[in-house]
Design a protein around this nucleic acid. Structure first.
Lengths: 223, 223
DNA sequence: CAGCTTTCTGGAACGTGTTCTACTTTGCTG
DNA sequence: CAGCAAAGTAGAACACGTTCCAGAAAGCTG
C-alpha cells in the first residue's frame, strides 16, 4: 500500500532550473499536496544531491545498486528525508530519467538531425538517443523498465513523441494533432521495445537501426 | 543476485491445454526440452494448482495480491516447493501470461478476424485481445508490466507479432522475414503501450482503437 | 524390503523497499 | 527572543521476495 505522494515536487518536469523563489505562508492550506514548490536553496541542493547520487549509483550496477539506503547515505541525508523528497524509489528513477531527457533535448537542439525526410530525421533522433543511453546500459535498462512499469505519472512517451514531431516533422506545437501523436507514439513504442531488446542482447545495433528506419518510414510517411 | 533457473520447466510454452483429464503415466513423452521435464502426474497437478492459484489471486488486487506465500498456501504447497517450480515471481507471472496467450490464440482460431485487409485484420485481433485483457484490468496491468520488465526470457512480443503476421497477413511461417517481423513488432509495441495507457485511464477504448487502426494501416500496408 | 535420491514441507532467516517513532534542528513570526 | 510548525536525523520495525535448512515423504532400484 504505497501511493505515490509528492510532498515537495518530484515531477520529472524539465523545470530543473527552478531556483528557489517565493513561497506562501505555510498555514494557507492543511497540507495541500504535490505542487507545493521547492522552498529553500538548501532544499534544492539536497534534491540535486539526491538525484545525482542516485544516477551515479545506478550507472554502475543498475537499479539494484541504487538502493535507497545507499542513495540516502551518499547524498548525506537520512532515509526518512529521502522518502520525503521521493516517496518511492520509482519517483526517484523518474527524476533521474527526466534529467536524461533534458540532456537529450538539449543535444538535439545543439545538433539537429540532418536527414532529408521526416522519417529519416525521426530515426536519426531516436538512434542518437539510443546511443546515448547505451553508454550506460545498466542505467538505461533500469530506467526504461522502471518507467514502463511505474504508475507514477510519466509523460515519458509523450515527451519523446512530441519531440519527434517537432524536430523531425517540423511541426509547430499547434499542428500536433492526436492522430499525429498516435503515429509518433507508435514509433516511440517500437523504439522503446527495440531498445529493451538490444539491452538484453537480443538485437544488434544494426538490427535496431534497420527496424526503426523501417517503422519510421511507414509511420512518418507524408508528415 | 537471482538468476532464473528452471528446474522443472517454467517455460511459457503454449502447452497449457493440459486438461487434468487423462494423464498418461509420466513416462509417455520424455518431456524433451527444458532441463528435466515434468515428471509425475502429481507434479503436473501441483504446477497447475500453482498457476491457477496465482492467476486467481492476481485477478483481484493485481500482482501485489499475488504474494508468493499466499500463492503457495493457496496451492497447498510449501514455499520452497513453489520456488522449485517457479524460481522467481516473474517466472510465475510469465506462466500465467502464457495461459492467457493460449486462450487468445484459440479464440482467434475459432473465430478469425473478418476485416478485408491485413491491417484491418491485425487491428481486429489486437483489439479483441485488448477487450479480453480488459475484463481483468488488474491482472492485465500487472501481467503486461511485469512482462516488459522481466529478464526472464519472454517471447511474448514475438509471439504476438508472429500471430499477427500469420493470421492477419496470412503469411505462412516460411515467409515471415525479419523485416516483416520488425513491422509487426512495431505494431505490437504500440499496442502494448496503448493498452497500458488505457489501463491507466489515460485512453478511452475508442481512442485506442483509432490509434491502433492508424498504426496498423501504415505498418501493414502492402503486406 | 533396504538403501538411495529426489521432492516436499514447515519454518527460520536474509535483503531491501517502505513506514514509523522519538528527538533535534531550522526558519520563521508575533 | 519565545514559540511553533515544518523539515531533518538516527535507527528500529515491518513487508514481501528470496534463500536455506533439517527432516519427512515419495519414488526408484537392486
Amino acid at each position: 500500500m504505497r501511493r505515490s505522494r509528492a510532498p515537495l515536487d518530484v515531477l520529472p518536469a524539465p523545470e530543473a532550473a527552478n531556483e528557489m523563489t517565493d513561497r506562501e505562508r505555510a498555514s494557507s492550506h492543511p497540507a495541500a499536496e504535490p505542487p507545493s514548490g521547492v522552498r529553500t536553496r538548501s532544499q534544492l541542493q539536497r534534491r540535486r544531491r539526491i538525484v545525482q547520487a542516485a544516477a551515479a549509483l545506478a550507472s554502475r550496477g543498475g537499479i539494484e545498486a541504487m538502493q535507497m539506503r545507499t542513495v540516502a547515505e551518499r547524498a548525506g541525508v537520512a532515509l526518512g528525508t529521502l522518502y520525503r523528497y521521493f516517496p518511492s524509489k520509482m519517483d526517484l528513477v523518474v527524476a533521474v530519467v527526466g534529467e536524461e531527457l533534458d540532456l537529450l533535448e538539449r543535444s538535439i537542439e545543439r545538433r539537429p538531425p540532418s536527414a532529408p525526410t521526416p522519417a529519416g530525421k525521426a530515426a536519426d533522433v531516436l538512434m542518437r538517443a539510443a546511443r546515448g543511453l547505451m553508454r550506460e546500459p545498466e542505467l538505461a535498462d533500469a530506467l526504461i523498465r522502471s518507467l514502463i512499469i511505474t504508475e507514477v505519472s510519466t509523460p515519458f512517451a509523450e515527451r519523446v513523441s512530441t519531440l519527434l514531431l517537432r524536430v523531425a516533422a517540423g511541426l509547430p506545437r499547434e499542428e500536433i494533432t492526436e492522430d499525429r501523436l498516435a503515429l509518433a507514439g507508435a514509433l516511440t513504442a517500437a523504439w522503446v521495445m527495440e531498445l529493451l531488446e538490444m539491452l538484453r542482447g537480443r538485437r544488434t545495433y544494426e538490427q535496431m537501426t534497420r527496424h526503426i528506419e523501417l517503422a519510421a518510414e511507414r509511420l512518418f510517411a507524408g508528415l
